[in-house]
């Protein structure tokens, strides 16, 4: 089992290095950093000095090693546009994105599993059919349209919820939270629904089909033949077997939620990392872009690592150290 975790960690490390290389390359291929920092009117001497100071004359592998070393310590350089450290820009924006994404993920997973199980158990019921039809709409509607639709209904027409921003936040050390104020909570509702809806429908459909598959398994039949009550078969025997493949896929999807909240943040003027990235792209702010790229990769690596650990907790066949036993 330790070997299994170590292998997951190693894989994560390789992924991070590969992404770091791409992020590093952006500095060289997306514009000239010297021009970006000094502007068009700088003298040749200024440029030569800065080039030397930034270490751009060093061999590329050395530069890369320095980049990785700095990034590992949380130093992503200085934003071209804002002239501030990228790390502090990211830390400022991080709480907004994390709160939005985590709540969306919880919303999508809890409701997705519940509705999926319901749709599988009441396969022929009209509510289940209705839920399935609605989920098809959810899968095919683009995220921004859901967001704009919600804004139109709840902000413009009904005036129940604010249409943009985080509302009032409370600072807990460097972390700012919108969870402790009424306006902060109200501001979260629509962005969370918007960001989580697509994942919700995907998870629900996945849970339903996996559960129907598991309910056909021999061990379910054998449990029935032993007189185990149907509810117990569904929620004890079938659900846990259903969740193993669901968690793998849902984990990757939820990583995507955290990483790509860009559209939702743009629609709701959410002061998070996605908005920071969109601005950075507009102004070719390479240090911010590359730091965001690394952040996204880190989130994916972290979620897949967590998924692997949950996997081990759920499936005893992995714990005995022979992953080949698991099908």
């Amino acid at each position: 089992m330790l070997a299994y975790i170590l292998r997951s960690l190693m894989q994560g490390l390789v992924v991070m290095l590969a992404v770091a290389f791409i992020a590093f390359s952006m500095f060289r291929f997306v514009g000239d950093p010297v021009v970006n920092m000094l502007g068009q009117e700088a003298t040749l001497q200024d440029r030569a000095e800065l080039t030397e100071r930034l270490g751009l004359n060093d061999p590329v592998p050395l530069q890369f090693a320095r980049f990785v070393g700095d990034a590992a310590q949380g130093d992503f350089g200085i934003s071209y546009r804002q002239g501030r450290k990228v790390s502090s820009l990211i830390l400022e924006r991080l709480p907004a994105t994390v709160e939005l994404a985590v709540l969306s993920a919880i919303f999508a997973f809890v409701l997705g599993v519940a509705l999926g199980v319901y749709a599988a158990i009441r396969r022929d019921g009209w509510i289940a059919n209705l839920v399935m039809s609605l989920s098809l709409i959810g899968v095919s509607l683009p995220t921004f349209l859901i967001g704009i639709g919600l804004i139109y209904i709840f902000a413009v027409e009904l005036r129940w919820l604010p249409s943009f921003g985080r509302g009032d936040t409370v600072a807990l050390g460097w972390w700012t939270t919108g969870l402790l104020t009424a306006s902060g909570l109200k501001s979260l509702i629509m962005p969370v629904l918007t960001l989580g809806f697509l994942q919700l429908t995907l998870i629900m459909r996945l849970v339903r089909s996996e559960m129907l598959e598991v309910m056909r398994a021999d061990f379910i039949r054998f449990a029935r033949a032993r007189g185990i009550p149907e509810r117990r078969i569904e929620f004890r025997h079938a659900l846990r077997n259903t969740l193993i493949p669901v968690i793998t896929i849902a984990g990757v999807q939820l990583g995507g939620v955290i990483a790509f909240a860009i559209v939702t943040e743009t629609v709701f003027q959410w002061p998070g990392l996605g908005a920071l990235f969109v601005n950075a792209v507009q102004f070719v702010d390479v240090p911010v872009m590359s730091a965001y790229l690394l952040f996204v990769a880190f989130v994916f690596v972290l979620t897949s690592l967590i998924v692997d650990l949950i996997y081990v907790a759920l499936d005893p066949r992995l714990r005995s150290g022979n992953p080949a036993m698991a099908k």
Binding site: R224, R226, G227, I228, P229, R240, D315, P316
Partner: peptide, 22 residues
Amino acid sequence: RKVRGRRIGMIFQDPLTSLNPL
């Protein structure tokens, strides 16, 4: 359901898939 297991038992063909692996 109460008859199953209590009064009639059943043994299936494939023991590899008859038991819940988890």
